[in-house]
Design a binder for these strands. Structure first.
Length: 819
RNA sequence: GGGCGCGUAGCUCAGUGGGAGAGCACUCGCCUUACAAGCGAGGGGUCGCAGGUUCGAAACCUGCCGCGCCCACCA
């Protein structure tokens, strides 16, 4: 689902840019783990004579790298599960040639610059995948374990002894020292002496090392240099032996004890019990909850292990990646995620890039018969008889090349010159370090320039309760199922609507159904417009021919256009989708279309103007919605305009057209909405059926300028014309900012007095509350003195409205009581 | 241990100094000639708790409680 989100957001940006006249290039790629993602390159279309129409579909170039074969860990995992029935031999697969060349090229450059080296280090080893892992491929989870304290030495009376503690007892088989802090008075007398290592029987020294923290545990720490990063550092400082006591599968090995061949967890218990039998255990804490590393792929507990691996010296690369954001060349959006970026690039360990997998880009280093090590270039041949390193590269090593290798690097291609650096990378924040950081480091290093201007990060797609989707939880959904049921547009609109920068989104089938309903609404609205001769080619009529309703919807349309423009420039997908949703449904469909129905019945010229406005608004609206709802808008827009495709239609310009007086029009329409809603409310409270047309006299329409809306109000509120013989049995008033309208109805003598009283009581209570609130504020001298005058004026107006409402409602209630 | 963030309607979430909002869910009434995947009306919130700043706080500050994520070689 995350892939669907990437694609959706990216495609929204792309479609808008193309409609704006940019040449936009979308570079999707399948990375090793099957994560689909993409990048966009956009450049203002240059002066090569192409009109906007010329670059319709065929300039929408997509380069799809089929990297899915390059999936070391994932395929390795599958192989294990499938067993040996599949032929997984290395030469059954081929790597993309261009990518291999790019990988080789950058490896050599880094190698020659001394930024790649081979060394014996403690690395994270996954005994299940049987490979080294980089730091970020390890997840730290809290698990209940045990903390065992036990005694070394002291076998004979008077013999030196020292108590150490560990959660991994079995590692004691590889201990080569015990370390204490040099200033620790408790152990000063022991420094330089030796104790006998239980079970194994070797004598090991007690060394003084700053790395031992006197405040932790007993202050004495056992040292297993080959199986713990701290201990490795201590071992290096003191020149200790570093025996490896575990094989690649995580079994005890080469200790010369009976534990050899035993799985590490099995050995943990066995060694503990052996120590217990020897009476050495002085304390046991269980459960002892502590964070331990798990392989992010197989969830196996990772084992720190001394081994010979290849590393990237990340110092200068990470510094450059941090600086690019620090000095503003690259924008991390939203900005709140910047600290996360800096925290990482500024404290990065060297990157272990060698993997002991059978699939992937092999490390381009050859070894000679006398220990020579060379890295020949892609076009060079290693000396005959030399052998290539068996290890392959971390998948993220090749992924990091993506922004430029997809454009042809290392060749100097026109694409590369034109489109690098790219404009924006859209991806989830969960991949910031894995991938974005690699691209930044390699882009800055290989190209000498940032790979993108903006990193626009979105969040994770979660289930309807905000829980992370996972196979084990069983709450994953297949986007294709929803697409089958509700359409691709519905899924896309849902994802776009929920996408707030850097924020996770909960998604459920109900949301998708709601989006489907929206698309359906849009469809029906357009159908209605077409049935009534909406004319998108007529152009906008002159201002003085427009009704207030026309002016209002046009003003709103232009406001929404500007709003959506601004929001999309800021990657606010959710808010732009929301703005379009509400404009379409709540304003265009619910009100303008209803008002238009009346105008279409009016004089011929008025009807024609309405048809032109309908065409104009829908044409614009469909173009605005196109990036969000591409398929439906394509069908509707081509039907409406007869144009070739909305994908190559121009994006609506932000400038409002020659519509004036929208402010007055907006006020009048707002008054109509209030009036109609109040009449409907009265009807509803009185139990007058929606289909029942009731004759009514409206008075007071002139003052708020609503006289032209008389027919519209009657249609919307289902009121009939008052015949000469109308004898109103009931009347009520609606207070509007610019005047009060009185409605007199003939309800054939039937009126639900209790309901009417309840309605008025409720209004009265609200008005009294409003009056009390506003009066309290205005009675406060510091408010009138310190608050801005426009705020004070607004409160005064509200107070006056409340007073008028109360007076009117109380009079009505009084009249009611008299009956 | 460090960093970031979140607690607003039943659920999922917007709102970030001046009248508490959306979608879905819920109640009532409607097959009203674009749409029942719909229309109309309505109910529902001490905006986590406590202080503070301010004329005014859901919003800004401090503390507390609860939750989440990322980073981290503490035995």
């Amino acid at each position: 689902m995350g892939h669907a989100l990437d694609h959706t957001l990216m495609d929204i940006l792309i479609r808008r840019r193309r409609m704006q006249g940019y040449e936009a290039l979308w570079l999707p790629g399948m990375d090793h783990a099957g994560i689909a993602t993409q990048n966009v390159v956009e450049k203002q279309l240059a002066v090569d004579g192409k009109s906007r129409h010329d670059f319709g579909r065929d300039l929408f170039v997509q380069k799809v790298w089929d990297w899915k074969h390059d999936s070391g860990g994932a395929i390795q995992g599958q192989m294990r599960r499938l067993g040996d029935s599949v032929d997984w031999s290395r030469d059954r697969f081929t790597l993309d040639e261009g990518l291999s060349r790019a990988v080789h090229t950058i490896f050599k450059r880094l190698f020659d610059d001394g930024l790649i080296y081979r060394a014996e280090r403690i690395i994270n080893w996954c005994p299940w995948c049987r490979t080294a892992l980089s730091d970020i491929e390890v997840d730290h989870d809290e698990v209940p374990g045990e903390l065992i304290s036990f005694r070394y030495g002291g076998d004979q009376p008077g013999e030196d002894s020292i108590v150490v503690a560990t959660t991994r007892v079995e590692t004691m088989l590889g201990d080569t020292a015990v370390a204490v802090h040099p200033d620790d008075e408790r152990y000063r007398h022991l420094i330089g002496r030796e104790v006998r290592l239980p079970i194994v029987g070797r004598m090991i020294p007690i060394v003084a090392d700053e790395g031992a923290d006197p405040t932790v545990g007993t202050g004495a720490v056992k040292v297993t240099p080959a199986h713990d990063p701290n201990d490795f550092a201590i071992g290096q400082r003191h020149g200790l032996p570093m025996p490896i006591i575990m094989d690649e599968d995580g079994r005890i090995a080469n200790t010369g004890t009976r534990f050899d061949g035993m799985d590490r967890f099995e050995a943990r218990e066995a060694v503990r019990e052996e120590l217990r039998a020897q009476g050495r255990i002085v304390a046991e804490k269980r459960p002892y909850v502590h964070a331990i590393g798990h392989c992010s792929r197989s969830d196996t507990v990772v084992e720190p292990r001394l081994s010979l691996q290849w590393f990237v010296r990340v110092g200068p690369l990470a510094k450059a990646a941090g600086d690019a954001v620090r000095d503003g060349r690259v924008l991390v959006h939203p900005k709140e995620l910047e600290p996360r970026w800096f925290g990482w690039v500024d404290n990065m360990h060297d990157w272990c890039i060698s993997r002991q997998l059978w699939w992937g880009h092999r490390i381009p280093v050859w070894y000679g018969p006398n220990g020579e090590v060379v890295c020949p270039g892609p076009d060079e041949r290693p000396p005959a008889g030399w052998t290539q390193d068996e290890d392959v590269l971390d998948t993220w090593f090749s992924s990091g090349l993506w922004p430029f290798s997809t454009l042809g690097w290392p060749e100097d291609t026109p694409d590369l010159r034109r489109f690098y650096p790219t404009s924006v990378l859209v991806t989830g924040y969960d991949i910031l370090f894995f991938w974005v950081a690699r691209m930044m480091m390699f882009g800055l290093y290989a190209m000498g320039e940032k790979p993108f201007d903006v990193v626009a990060l979105h969040g994770l797609v979660r289930d309807q309760h905000g829980k992370k989707m996972s196979k084990s939880r069983g709450n994953t959904v297949d986007p294709l199922e929803w697409i089958d049921r509700y359409g691709a547009d519905a899924l896309r609109f849902t994802l776009a609507r929920g996408a707030n920068p850097g924020g996770d989104q909960a998604i459920s089938e109900e949301w998708v159904a709601g989006s489907r309903n929206f698309a359906n609404k849009l469809w029906n609205a357009t159908r209605f417009a077409l049935m009534n001769g909406a004319d998108a080619g007529a152009g906008l009529p002159a201002g003085d021919e427009l009704t207030d309703a026309d002016r209002w919807i046009l003003g709103r349309l232009h406001a929404v256009t500007r709003e959506v423009d601004a929001l999309l420039e800021d990657f606010q997908f959710g808010k732009s989708a929301e703005a379009l949703y509400h404009f379409t449904w709540d304003e265009f469909c619910d009100w303008y279309l209803e008002l238009a129905k009346v105008q279409l019945q009016a004089a011929e010229r008025t009807a024609d103007v309405t048809r032109a406005v309908l065409g104009y608004v829908l044409d614009t609206l469909l173009r605005l919605l196109h990036p969000f709802v591409p398929f439906v808008t394509e069908a509707l827009w081509t039907a409406l305009t007869g144009g070739e495709s909305v994908t190559i239609a121009p994006w609506p310009p932000p400038e409002p057209s020659t519509v004036d007086e929208t402010e007055v029009a907006a006020q009048r329409v707002a008054a109509v909405q209030k009036l109609v809603t109040e009449i409907r409310r009265f009807r509803s409270d009185q139990g007058i059926g929606p289909g029942q047309r009731v004759a009514a006299r409206l008075s007071g329409l002139d003052t708020p300028g609503l006289a032209p809306f008389d027919a519209a109000i009657r249609t919307l509120a289902r009121l009939g014309q008052p015949g000469a013989a109308l004898r109103p049995t009931v009347s009520f008033e609606v207070g509007l900012p610019a005047g009060t309208v009185t409605i007199e109805l003939d309800t054939s003598g039937v009126i639900d007095l209790a309901a009417e009283r309840a309605r008025l009581d409720k209004d009265l209570a609200a008005a009294r509350k409003e009056l009390a609130g506003t009066e309290a504020k205005l009675a406060n001298p510091s408010f009138t003195r310190k608050a801005p005058s426009e705020v004070v004026d607004k409160i005064r107006l509200r107070r006056e409205v409340a007073r008028a409402d109360i007076e009117r409602i109380e009079a009505r209630l009084g009249a009611l009581a008299a009956r």
